[in-house]
């Protein structure tokens, strides 16, 4: 356990530059992950209510005409 953490400490945290860039890369990744996750959650809460859920009905009928 300590070995792993020690490895993390020595590779990521010890050098300020690496630590800072890790923070920003992490923030970027978190942003992407959070946006994707929260949008998916939002869409599942509102399933069937949003336009993109009911769009196909009207698009299909368009094609038939």
């Amino acid at each position: 356990m300590s070995g792993v953490l020690g490895g993390i400490y020595n590779t990521v945290i010890r050098s300020n530059g690496v630590f800072l860039s890790a923070i920003f890369v992490g923030a970027f990744a978190t942003n992407l992950a959070f946006d994707t996750g929260s949008n998916a959650l939002w869409d599942s809460i509102n399933r069937g209510r949003q336009w993109k859920d009911i769009k196909h009905r009207y698009m299909e009928s368009e094609d038939e005409e």
Binding site: S2, I8, Y9, I13, F19, I23, F24, A27, F34
Partner: peptide
């Protein structure tokens, strides 16, 4: 162990900074 503490503290401070950067962006 000291390493545990250090890693935890740096992680918390770093994550705090990262989340702030995300919000600011």
């Amino acid at each position: 162990s000291e390493t545990n503490n250090k890693v935890f503290q740096y992680f918390m401070v770093g994550a705090f900074g990262g989340l702030s950067a995300l919000g600011a962006k």
